[in-house]
Simulated assay, not measured.
Amino acid sequence: MVTAEAGGLGAVFLELMESEGPQDSESSEKSAFFSQHEEEEEGEDEEAAREPEETGTINPLLQPALTGDVEGLQMIFEDPENPHHEQAMQLLLEEDIVGRNLLYAACMAGQSDVIRALAKYGVNLNEKTARGYTLLHCAAAWGRLETLKALVELDVDIEALNFREERARDVAARYSQTECVEFLDWADARLALKKYIAKASAAVTDTEKGPGKLFKEDKNTVLNACRVRNEWLETHLEASINEIFEQKQQLEDIVTPILTKMATPRQTKGSKAVV
Rank of each mutant, 00 (worst) to 15 (best):
Val228Phe: 06
Ala150Lys: 07
Lys216Tyr: 08
Cys180Ala: 15
Thr207Gly: 15
Asp170Pro: 08
Ala189Lys: 04
Trp232Asp: 02
Val171His: 02
Ala160Thr: 12
Arg174Ser: 13
Leu214Asp: 02
Asp155Met: 08
Ala189Ser: 12
Val152Thr: 13
Gly143Pro: 12
Arg164Gln: 09
Gly212Ser: 08
Leu154Gly: 07
Leu151Val: 05
Cys226Gly: 05
Lys194Asn: 10
Ala172Gly: 09
Ala139Lys: 02
Leu151Phe: 08
Glu231Arg: 12
Val156Ser: 06
Ser176Phe: 07
Leu237Met: 11
Phe183Gly: 03
Lys194Phe: 03
Ala198Ser: 12
Ser201Tyr: 03
Ala187Val: 03
Leu193Asp: 00
Ala160Ser: 14
Leu214Ala: 07
Ala200Thr: 02
Lys199Gly: 01
Leu136Met: 05
Ile197Arg: 00
Arg190Tyr: 10
Leu214Thr: 04
Glu179Val: 05
Thr221Leu: 14
Ile241Thr: 09
Val156Trp: 02
Leu237Ser: 14
Asp157Ser: 14
Glu238Leu: 13
Tyr196Ala: 02
Ala203Gly: 07
Glu234Ser: 13
Ser240Gly: 11
Leu191Glu: 12
Asp157Leu: 08
Pro211Gly: 03
Gly143Arg: 04
Glu165His: 06
Gly210Arg: 15
Glu166Tyr: 14
Glu182Tyr: 02
Thr235Leu: 10
Ala139Gly: 04
Phe215Val: 03
Glu165Phe: 06
Ala192Tyr: 10
Leu233Glu: 06
Leu184Ala: 04
Asp185Ile: 07
Arg190Cys: 11
Lys216Leu: 09
Cys180Trp: 00
Lys195Phe: 01
Glu182Ser: 14
Ile197Met: 09
Ala200Asn: 06
Ser240Leu: 12
Arg164Thr: 08
Cys180Ser: 15
Leu145Phe: 03
Glu153Asn: 08
Ala168Ile: 10
Ala192His: 12
Asn242Val: 13
Tyr196Met: 12
Asp218Glu: 12
Asp157Cys: 11
Lys149Arg: 13
Ser176Tyr: 09
Asp218Thr: 00
Cys226Pro: 02
Lys209Tyr: 12
Val222Thr: 03
Val204Ile: 10
Ala173Arg: 14
Lys195Pro: 01
Ser176Met: 04
Val222Met: 11
Ser201Asn: 13
Asp188Pro: 00
Glu231Leu: 12
Val228Asn: 07
Asp170Gly: 13
Leu151Pro: 02
Asp206Glu: 14
